[in-house]
């Protein structure tokens, strides 16, 4: 599999956009619904390519997100590393799942991530999160198909552009 510089920059660009999106302020009413953008994009790329996405990149992206969002340094790094590991581990199966089944696995991944994060925040002495804490995975799954199509078409356009 040849891996061009263009698609490499596309990967980095989409990840950077996802980081910016997670910093973007939303009205207070919507803020508990905010999906985990970076995770969704990372899941997509680790499903679709093998060349660039690895645990090291996941860790780095997580650290950048930690610094920008002011969370404990290493928290998002841990969550993204675990997520990318799981996707890569079950990649052969996930890739050939029908779309609804794939979406369901994405939901499981996001919920699993929420569980890990809630352990960490519990260790920090934060109060137990309310039911709203579990909404973002649902929103994330609702967005997943559209994000998948968007990134697919971006990639296709890139490829056409090249040839």
């Amino acid at each position: 599999m040849t891996f061009s510089r263009e698609s490499r920059s596309l990967i980095l660009l989409t990840i950077a956009t996802a980081v910016l999106l997670s910093l973007l302020p939303v009205p207070a009413l919507l803020s508990p619904l905010k999906p985990y953008w970076v995770a969704l994009v990372m899941i997509y790329w680790s499903l679709e390519t093998r060349a660039m996405i690895n645990l090291g990149l996941a860790f780095l992206v997580g650290l950048v997100l930690d610094i920008l969002s002011g969370s404990l340094l290493g928290m998002h790094a841990l969550s993204l590393v675990v997520m990318v590991f799981l996707v890569q581990r079950f990649r052969p199966r996930l890739r050939f799942f029908p779309p609804w089944q794939q979406a369901f696995s994405v939901l499981l991944l996001l919920v699993n991530d929420r569980i890990i994060l809630s352990w960490i925040t519990a260790l920090l002495g934060e109060p137990m999160p309310t039911w709203k804490y579990w909404l973002p995975p649902l929103i994330g799954v609702a967005i997943w198909p559209w994000l998948f199509l968007l990134l697919d078409s971006l990639r296709a356009r890139m490829r056409r552009h090249k040839t």
């Binding site: 645990l55 340094l73 290493g74 790094a77 590393v81 675990v82 590991f85 581990r89």
Partner: peptide, 24 residues
């Protein structure tokens, strides 16, 4: 192959935990 990836995962998790406790 599989073991190496798991080893790397454990290494990164350990690193993240060390970072978090140092930050805390």
């Amino acid at each position: 192959e599989e073991g190496a990836r798991t080893a790397r995962l454990l290494m990164y998790i350990l690193l993240a935990i060390v970072l978090m406790s140092m930050d805390q």
